[in-house]
Design a protein around this nucleic acid. Structure first.
Lengths: 214, 214
DNA sequence: TGTAGCATGTAAGCCGTTACATGATTGA
DNA sequence: TCAATCATGTAACGGCTTACATGCTACA
């Protein structure tokens, strides 16, 4: 229709689509989101299976999207004096996705296929070099990782609870459940690695086995 | 001991430690590894829980590490004529980790603690925005992902088989098993998501449920 | 009055990728 | 002789982060 539809659907980094996607939940009918709020949403969603971009990136990405006509920046209409007592008047930029923006997200979803996931797992990376450390230290590392995993899982569970069974967020809830199952699986796997017998002889003892000294 | 031990253990990107770690397997006693071989090792190990760096990065990283004294670049001693018939004579740079390099890796392992893993999961990211697509398309995406998962798993299984039960690679085998279990878990989770009932009403039908049209 | 949260950016810089360029060796 | 693999780099650039800078509002 408009010339705006010509925008190349590629050329945008995945994080841009992620942010556009977040704007599709509240940014359409409502007043939109501030950069700050966008970052908060990201922390509660993207964080678990993507990356929560830095504040500065949220802003620079919004600038880019506004320039591309995919997002509208609403300088909020002043409200010169505090309208309601005790209510902070907000004079900030609120971002709203445009029709062109929505079209771009839909096209991206429909016409491109997802790459295989990339995992950056510092614990696994270090375990690979276990022979440079001690079995005790490797055990400790894995146990610490179990704690971190539990903490993360609790965070995500809180998010999941917020989503309750509201239908608008059916898919986000689904993704959250995916994440929970993922953390559970990783917990099981790491636990079983800890149970596993240590490296064969040679080394200083029992490997990953809890040292039954004495 | 030597002034080389002063090298700041930080300041190196994780990929540098990963590459140093790879050099610790063969690069110590043997003739070392070429950049090319290093990349191959990375493809068989790092790839599954980290990132397999581009060739160009392998070289630039080696350059950095050589400059830092953590790696030795051996310009191979010529072998002017093909020593053995049918055997390619290699006149290439082979990289060997130095004592300082080994110290740095060990210090990194012992003194720094791993960050929480980061997952970049394009499939989950798209599923989050499922309401912008059709349940059918989401189903198809997840099914395609299952195929990709199976292919990846097979690759990793092949790697695991190569590691057999050789003790030098006990830890790499452990990490490979971790990866296999991880892929299995993800397969289960995605399968269960596909079995799950679709989004409640409103939308055009049965959600993720296989459409029982007619 | 001060701190915490809200809000918005700029600047510098590293990590890492793709694209490009080059050339030797092996085997069909 | 041609293609595939081995082998090594440079250049340009993009994404994303950290550090820095600024200022307002709410509340204790």
């Amino acid at each position: 229709m408009t010339s705006a539809t010509v925008f190349s659907a590629e050329g945008l980094p995945p994080t841009a689509y992620a942010l556009l996607g977040l704007l599709m939940f509240t940014g359409r009918t409502d007043a939109g989101l501030t950069g700050y709020e966008l970052k908060q949403r990201a922390d509660r969603t993207l964080r678990y299976y993507w990356v929560s971009p830095a504040m500065s990136q949220v802003y620079s990405e919004m600038t880019r999207l506004v320039r591309a006509g995919l997002v509208l920046a609403l300088e909020s209409p002043a409200e010169p004096r505090p309208a309601v007592a005790g209510r902070r008047r907000r004079r900030t930029t609120r971002y709203v996705i445009t029709d062109a923006g929505e079209a771009v997200v839909r096209a991206w979803l429909a016409e491109t296929s997802p790459e295989f996931p990339v995992l950056k797992h510092p614990v696994a990376l270090r375990l690979l070099m276990g022979h440079l450390s001690t079995p005790q230290d490797m055990r400790a590392m894995l146990e610490t990782h179990l704690d971190a995993l539990a903490a993360r899982r609790a965070d995500l569970q809180a998010v999941r609870d917020m989503l309750a069974d509201r239908e608008e967020v059916w898919y986000p809830a689904m993704v959250a459940d995916w994440g929970l199952a993922y953390y559970d699986a990783e917990t099981q796997i790491v636990t079983s690695l800890l149970d596993r017998a240590g490296p064969p002889a040679g080394g200083a003892g029992a490997g990953l086995e809890p040292d039954a000294d004495g």
